[in-house]
Design a protein around this nucleic acid. Structure first.
Lengths: 160, 160
DNA sequence: TATGAAAAGATAATCCC
DNA sequence: GGGATTATCTTTTCATA
């Protein structure tokens, strides 16, 4: 049973969500602790799953993915087996970064990377529409990305 | 003028996108280099902007954000000044993780975190709809998250 | 120009209080 | 939680190809 986290843990998470290359000593100083307790807190945050991973964020455009698309997918009702097949397929396609089931008119929402429009059009017909249960795809193509972060707020704000 | 990256660089990025806590020595071994050249490659990848950041991924649900929403926003035509205001506002709201301008019926797409439905409803009326130019918000609430990665594929796949 | 071995410096991890 | 120690890793240097 993971204990609750306190204000110092939150500060640590806040800092590490922005720069995980900070040393324990530097983090410690910024949150007002000395090295060892700060290090122990970080370990605990990892063990208890508050920190899920430490990764590097790569420039997608520099790597040739000029397009980012949100694809809304309409699906037929699926057997458990087909549902598993669908998610397995999604998982094996690296250009699909995110997959959610959603409320509303459509049934799933995907975030997809593509090098260009030609590739994406082919992808829809030769891959997406052939996944189990998929009957329709509606694509929302992003033009400019004005904000993009993985940093979660450390508490939901009140509004004015 | 940043040089192109080669197959070894790609392998390094692939590994670091999944686990950035690997030591240089371990990375070096896995890509078939010794420490120093591997280390220099990582430096270069940072300097040239292929690696944009090193961060920790935090469990949003454990931190109380039970809801994730894609909000499609319809906007009036904006002056440059109002557009700047809009983006400034977006940037200052930590619950908005991503913001894109998009093609189609709506004009912007936001990824938003919320602790619960009540909070989100208030957020729409007291914050979103008061941003400069916003005239309509259509929300797509996610139910389950079956895939979520920040790892970009190292080359677009061909399809079968 | 790029590599690898090895030294120097910094940081992470452990121990004891 | 803090201080000090040890183990490990990062970063620089330098010789080599």
């Amino acid at each position: 049973m993971p204990a609750e986290i306190d204000a110092i843990d939150m500060k640590i998470l806040e800092l590490m969500q922005r720069d995980a290359s900070l040393s324990t000593a530097e983090l410690a100083e910024r949150v007002g602790l000395s090295q060892s307790p700060c290090w122990r807190r970080i370990q605990r945050l990892r063990e208890e799953g508050y920190i899920k991973a430490q990764v590097v964020i790569v420039d997608r455009e520099k790597l040739g993915f000029k397009m980012q698309i949100f694809a809304q997918v309409k699906m037929t009702t699926l057997s458990d087996e087909d549902r598993a097949k669908f998610h397995k397929a999604i998982n094996d396609i690296p250009e699909i970064l995110e997959c959610y089931t959603v409320f509303g008119e459509m049934d799933a929402m995907l975030k997809i990377l593509a090098p260009d429009v030609i590739w994406y059009q082919d992808f829809i017909f030769s891959t997406l529409l052939k996944l189990p249960g998929v009957v329709d795809v509606r694509s929302i193509v992003t033009l400019t990305e004005s904000k993009s972060t993985t940093a979660i707020p450390m508490r939901a704000r009140k509004f004015r």
